[in-house]
């Protein structure tokens, strides 16, 4: 008996690959919306919007202090309960069974990412020197204009490496979606593996697929980072005096 049935593994690769689009879909949706919400939350935190500031501190602590799997389950089981209560109170007739599991995954992953992104964006925004905002104010811009034109673009440059890491982490995290019945890479690998006890083969296939995707993404992000850094290096060729633009108080 051969240790690993390579033939079988290779033969089943296409079947497992069918889950890749779903994996990517979850990651992309969560990344995009998580980034938007994360940015809004970060701004609320930085400008200490009353009530919302405290709320978001608790929100971020909760999301980061509980496992993603648990969050997935909370949504998966919580939404039908919520809908039932809504049906009772408002006489609506929403049926939780009609909701695709994918939607639960989208929501739960987005909420999860937004908490982490909020912290990343908060750090990036703080890293942009306060002098930039002051200069923008002093030429008469409103805070909104200053953020949009001067501060946010610089904050994104600072945040870029972290964004890459977050996305790669997301790809791996999508493997948990099978617990709420989403048919992505992990789910497919499991189904095929259980069918004939080909565990080693199928999970190796799954591992290789994830490894390949993450490797490609890392190459992509490093390439983008290098391009940005080269642009910066060219601009910094004649940099002389002080690099920190902190206003001194007298």
């Amino acid at each position: 008996m051969p240790i690993i049935n390579f033939e079988f593994a290779i033969q089943e690769i296409p079947a497992v690959l069918k889950g890749v689009p779903i994996t990517l879909a979850i990651a992309v949706v969560a990344m995009v919306f998580g980034l938007i919400f994360g940015l809004l939350i970060a701004l609320c935190r930085i400008y200490r919007v009353p009530i919302l500031n405290r709320l978001f501190i608790i929100y971020i602590s909760f999301i980061r202090g509980t496992p993603l799997l648990v969050q997935l389950y909370v949504f998966f089981y919580g939404v039908p309960v919520l809908l039932d209560k809504m049906n009772q109170s408002f006489g609506t007739a929403y049926n939780a069974d009609h909701i695709s599991p994918l939607l639960y995954a989208f929501i739960a992953f987005t909420i999860n990412v937004s908490a982490y992104q909020a912290e990343i964006m908060r750090a990036s925004l703080n890293a942009v020197q306060i002098g930039q905002m002051e200069a923008a104010h002093s030429v008469g811009m409103t805070t909104f204009q200053a953020l949009k034109r001067i501060v946010l673009p610089q904050a994104f440059l600072v945040a870029l490496p972290n964004l890459g890491n977050t996305f790669i982490g997301l790809i791996k995290a999508t493997s948990l979606a099978f617990a709420v019945k989403v048919v992505e890479v992990m789910a497919l690998a499991k189904i095929i593996a259980n069918d004939g006890y080909h565990f080693l083969e199928m999970y190796l296939v799954a591992a290789l697929i994830y490894w390949l995707i993450c490797w490609l993404l890392e190459v992509l992000f490093t390439f983008v980072e290098e391009k940005m850094r080269n642009k910066e290096i060219k601009q910094k060729k004649m940099n002389t005096t002080i690099s920190k633009d902190l206003p001194l108080r007298v």
């Binding site: 002098g131 200069a135 030429v139 008469g140 034109r149 001067i150 920190k244 001194l248």
Partner: peptide, 24 residues
């Protein structure tokens, strides 16, 4: 400003015109 506080993501000309276009 003492530490210039030029808009790092804008060119020299853009630094001067930002306020004119946006605020004025």
């Amino acid at each position: 400003f003492q530490h210039y506080n030029l808009f790092e993501n804008k060119t020299v000309l853009e630094n001067v015109t930002e306020g004119l276009i946006i605020a004025q």
